[in-house]
Amino acid sequence: MLEAAICNMKAFGRVVVCGVISHYTDIGKRASPSMIDIVYNRITIKGFLASDFMNDFANFLAKTSNYLRFEKLHVIEDISTGVESVPSAFIGLFNGDNIGKKIVCLAKE
């Protein structure tokens, strides 16, 4: 995905990167965008960790809660049902099978 995004970016585009889940399971698999595209289009790539922003968490939580409450933000959930679906749901995370937040529903409320 990163390679495709870099190839289609405008000059002076910016990319932020947080999380490299594909690297957790396959050390031989590396994201490698075309360096010539990065140089010619003067693209900036910056990594960050979620923990870099923990001092903003209370403000984020308050704003996000209101967005959800007033339906200005919609959550996308990919829900599997039953304890038997846990292994395939977990493996699917590493294969990119889910869209949005992956949830396994073990019992109805």
Rank of each mutant, 00 (worst) to 15 (best):
M1P: 10
L2Y: 01
E3C: 01
E3D: 15
A4N: 15
A4W: 10
A5H: 06
I6Q: 13
C7I: 10
N8V: 04
M9H: 13
M9N: 11
M9I: 09
K10P: 11
F12D: 14
G13S: 10
G13E: 02
R14G: 01
R14H: 14
V15H: 07
V15Q: 04
V15C: 02
V17A: 11
C18G: 07
G19F: 13
G19T: 11
G19M: 08
V20R: 13
V20N: 12
I21S: 15
S22L: 10
S22E: 10
H23M: 14
H23N: 14
Y24F: 15
Y24V: 13
T25E: 07
T25S: 08
T25K: 14
D26T: 10
I27M: 11
I27C: 12
I27E: 09
G28D: 15
G28L: 05
K29F: 05
R30D: 05
S32H: 12
S32L: 09
P33Y: 11
M35F: 13
I36D: 00
I38Q: 02
V39M: 04
N41C: 11
I43M: 03
I43L: 11
I45F: 04
K46N: 14
K46F: 05
K46W: 12
K46H: 15
K46E: 12
K46L: 11
G47M: 04
F48L: 13
F48Q: 00
L49V: 09
A50K: 05
A50G: 04
D52L: 03
D52V: 01
D52S: 02
D52T: 00
F53P: 01
M54H: 14
N55C: 01
D56Q: 12
F57W: 03
F57N: 06
A58E: 04
F60N: 08
F60E: 01
L61H: 02
A62L: 08
A62H: 01
S65L: 11
N66S: 14
N66L: 11
N66R: 10
N66F: 02
Y67K: 03
Y67F: 02
L68K: 05
R69S: 12
F70L: 02
F70Q: 06
L73P: 06
H74N: 09
V75A: 06
V75T: 01
V75S: 08
I76W: 06
E77N: 09
D78S: 13
D78A: 07
I79G: 05
I79K: 03
T81A: 14
T81N: 13
G82N: 02
E84N: 08
E84S: 08
E84L: 12
S85R: 05
S85G: 07
S85Y: 02
S85L: 14
V86L: 15
V86N: 03
P87Q: 14
P87T: 12
S88A: 10
S88C: 11
A89M: 08
I91A: 11
G92N: 05
L93I: 14
L93V: 12
F94M: 13
F94P: 11
N95H: 14
N95M: 05
N95A: 04
N95T: 01
G96S: 06
D97W: 00
N98C: 14
G100F: 00
K101T: 08
K101L: 03
K101R: 15
K102T: 09
K102S: 10
V104R: 06
C105Y: 04
C105E: 15
C105S: 12
L106V: 09
L106M: 04
L106H: 06
A107R: 05
A107Y: 09
K108Y: 01
E109C: 07
E109L: 01
